[in-house]
Amino acid sequence: MRVLLVEDDRLIGDGLKAGLEKLGFAVDWFTDGLEGEEALYQAPYEVVILDLGLPGQDGLDILKKWRTKGRKEPVLILTARGDVDQRIIGLNSGADDYLGKPFSLKEVQARLNALVRRSNGSSLPLLTYKNISFNPQTRQVTLNGKEVILSPKENNLLELLLLNKNKILSKEAIENKIYSWDDEVQSNAVEVHIHHLRKKLGRDFVRTINKIGYILEDK
C-alpha cells in the first residue's frame, strides 16, 4: 500500500517511514508542505499521513486545497495539539482521522488500514477471496485456513488485488501502488511477484489479460 507522508520533524518522519515500510507500506516522505502538496498529484497514493504543524504551509491549508481540487484520498492527520477544537477543525477541513502525538507506530498502522478499508467500501477487517483470506493489520495470509508466508511486496500485491476485485490492474498501476519513489523497480518485477503468488496460492489465482494487466475475478 503506497502512503504519502508529509512530516517536517526529521526524527519522527524517519521513524515513521522506516517503521511503516517494515510493516509493509510503501512510503514517500516529504518534509516541506509545498512539495508534499504537489506529491499527491504525482503518484497513486492509497492514503495520506499529514502533519498539521508544518512550516511553510499549514497542513490544514494543504488538505483544503486537495479537497477543493476533488482529491478523495483518505487523510490521517498528525498533530502535537490534542485539543478537541483542533480535531473538529481538522475533521471539518476534510480529514478522515486524527492522531495526537505521542502516538505509536502500531496505532498509525491500524488507522491507515481502517481508512483504506473504509475508502474501498469495506468495513470488514479481513479481506477474502474464495479460500484465501488476508488480515491487513497483521499482514497474515491464510489458504484454506493454513498460514502462507509471503514477502512484503507479494503481501502488498495481494492486498491491492483483493481491494480491487473485478477490476483490471495494469502492470504500471501495480508498480506505482506497491513501490515508493525510493524503491528500485526491475522491469519484470510485477510478473515475478504474480508468479510467486500463483505458486503459493494456486495456479489460477489471478487471470492475466494479455498486454493489459491482471484481474482477480470474484463471481
Binding site: 520533524d9 526524527l11 519522527i12 524517519d14 521513524g15 515513521l16 522506516a18 517503521g19 517494515k22 502535537a80 495526537g100 502525538k101 505521542p102 502516538f103 505509536s104 507506530l105 502500531k106
Partner: peptide, 15 residues
C-alpha cells in the same frame, strides 16, 4: 513541544 521529541523517540524504538 515535548510531545514531538517523545513521539520521535517512541517511533524510533518501535522501528
Amino acid at each position: 513541544e515535548l510531545r514531538s521529541p517523545l513521539t520521535a523517540l517512541k517511533v524510533q524504538l518501535e522501528v
